[in-house]
């Protein structure tokens, strides 16, 4: 399942997209501790598989939560994306 966690408003679309297929098979889930703003949580998807998702409390403020990892210049790889061994995470902005 491709899960789009986030929102869109007049300023753009701010979604973290997680492919829960490879995510469900990942035991360590290094993306969770890799996020300096604790955006990710592990929860059961509707079909009973534990997968990584965006914390509900963060979902509507993702743009601000992720801002520190997205400087305007010399942007390093995003910690969550770099940490995911399955390439299951991407950001839409």
């Amino acid at each position: 399942m491709i899960a789009h966690h986030g929102y869109e408003d007049a300023e753009g679309a701010f979604y973290i997209v997680i492919d829960t297929g490879p995510c469900a098979g990942c035991a360590d889930r290094p993306c969770v501790p890799a996020c300096p703003r604790a955006v990710f949580v592990v929860e059961e998807d509707p079909y009973g598989d534990p997968v990584v998702a965006v914390d509900g409390a963060r979902r509507r403020t993702l743009r601000d939560a992720c801002a520190a990892c997205k400087p305007n210049r010399d942007r390093p790889p995003l910690p969550c994306v770099a940490a995911c061994p399955g390439g299951a995470i991407r950001h839409t902005w």
Partner: peptide
């Protein structure tokens, strides 16, 4: 009927 992709917007 199993979800393969979803997107939700509840901010606006």
């Amino acid at each position: 009927g199993k979800v393969t992709n979803f997107l939700m917007n509840d901010k606006c």
